[in-house]
Design a protein around this nucleic acid. Structure first.
Lengths: 271, 271
DNA sequence: TTGCTCCTCACGTCACGTGAGGTGGC
DNA sequence: TTGCTCCTCACGTCACGTGAGGTGGC
């Protein structure tokens, strides 16, 4: 019979762990002195302790270890648990690898530039939205070309929705496509919850759900290029691929345009 | 101004997270209604929220995120944190890979044999020990050859220690070496804390500290072969390499030998 | 008035580490 | 008697999830 200290030393575990295993019924001492409460273990109990440690090292919770050791788990169930554990470990390794890649990117950027890189890019899941849309063409993607096109689109769209008695259900979303002749097709959209109909003098479009790399641009849209570039750089550096047209989500549009907040959204896949 | 629900939806986080970030001072609402306690956020605060999420996704704690965002961290310190994080992630991936390999081994074993494999093997660090040792030769490693040699060795060793007035400081440890002619050199040891001396009629040997794969054998040493085989199988399957002579650590040796408990220790490296 | 959203506690999570405060045996 | 080991609470860890119980605005 060994006291708890000796048993812990032989088993290379802490005394506290043994008390914990006693408390949860995972490893009860062979004998407890009724007067002092002292725990005593048999050397042979090291075998069970070792089984516990071995299963714990595989990443099972103590509750699972308990089930496995006390026969509450059939051979078939054990196979299932091991397969699940394998899947979890593979997922965990993959997630850590993604984190590691992100850290590498930041380290390289900071060592190139000596400054904190653009941290504001986040991958988000964008749900599908139904939009009322008006479309027009612009000469290029520079703000000087876009602004004079999109402004009147939104004014007109607002009026037409009003005439049709429809209330937008959220903030404006614009999206852009490149035409063959390198001009840009500008879509000005407002979320609505109506069925498409010939009677409307605007289109009703369902934007699909997607993963997107996003960045919040603060300030006038005239100065949005650096934010777009930061977004594009990040997407490239993290191994994502752009899919589908970029979107602009107008979060906050007070009269003073220098105080606007816009989320730039680049639908992506991979990573 | 957005209420907490809308802000959470835009940021793809839970309301509870925003309250938590408020509580720890990481992201305070732009405005709090004094009467109701309602939190209100500006759309532009999404930029900070995204920074928080991005750094959190790299695996930084919220406290570290707070330090990084609030400028309490210089560019140099940030580099250091990123390097540390990289090392942590690499270690985490390596540890998970070891666990995964262990799970794979178990899965393969259980699918070959349809039964729970030998779980009792555990890697431990064995500290260095000083032993009083008597040595003899045995014909082979089978228990029939070892037992008649080691018994008298321990009897004699006990007597000689008694004559020298030395008390063993722990349980017996035996170790074995293979001679060139394939016979086995048997060392019977008892832990002591004395300096080596010519006056003793036994050797004083320092066994080095080592990592070892260990298994607890319960029962007579006449039946130790299956345990040794399980140990050897495990060492092989997990990619460890044996280094140095195997040891036997006698944990509990009552008169009834069928109740003995012995830890078989195989010094290893790698894994 | 019914729903909906918001609020503030406060417990639970997981496997112990770490005191605090006290006792028994050498 | 001093050390050493043992004991039982009980809080702390980390980032929230999840009720409980209650309130304000449409």
């Amino acid at each position: 019979m060994l006291n708890i200290g000796d048993f812990a030393r032989h088993g290379r575990v802490s005394v506290r762990m043994l008390r914990h295993y006693d408390a949860i019924g995972l490893l009860r001492p062979a004998h407890v002195d009724p007067a002092s409460g002292y725990r005593f273990y048999q050397a042979g109990q090291l075998a069970r302790l070792n089984r516990i440690i071995a299963l714990k090292d595989l990443g099972f919770t103590l509750e699972q270890v308990s089930g496995i050791l006390d026969g509450g788990v059939s051979s078939e169930q054990l196979r299932g648990m091991l397969r699940l554990r394998r899947a979890e470990l593979e997922a965990s390794i993959a997630a850590d690898a993604v984190r590691l890649a992100g850290v590498e990117v930041r380290l390289r950027t900071i060592e190139d530039e000596g400054t904190m890189p653009n941290n504001d890019v986040v991958i988000k899941h964008l749900p599908a939205v139904r939009l009322a849309v008006l479309t027009a063409s612009a000469a290029g993607f520079e703000p000087e070309s876009i602004t004079p096109v999109i402004r009147p689109l939104y004014e007109s769209l607002g009026e037409r929705l009003g005439e049709a008695g429809i209330e937008p259900t959220g903030m404006p979303i614009a999206y852009y496509e490149r035409a063959e002749d390198d001009t840009v097709i500008v879509h000005a959209g407002l979320p609505v919850s109506v069925e498409p109909s010939d009677r409307y003098d605007f289109a009703v479009v369902d934007l699909p759900a997607t993963e997107a790399a996003t960045i919040v641009h603060r300030g006038s849209m005239a100065e949005c290029l650096p934010s777009y570039q930061a977004l594009a750089t990040w997407v490239d550096a993290h191994g994502y691929t752009s899919v589908g047209p970029a979107r602009e989500f107008y979060l906050d549009c007070p009269d003073d345009e220098s105080k606007w907040a816009t989320e730039l959204q680049e639908p992506v896949t991979g990573g």
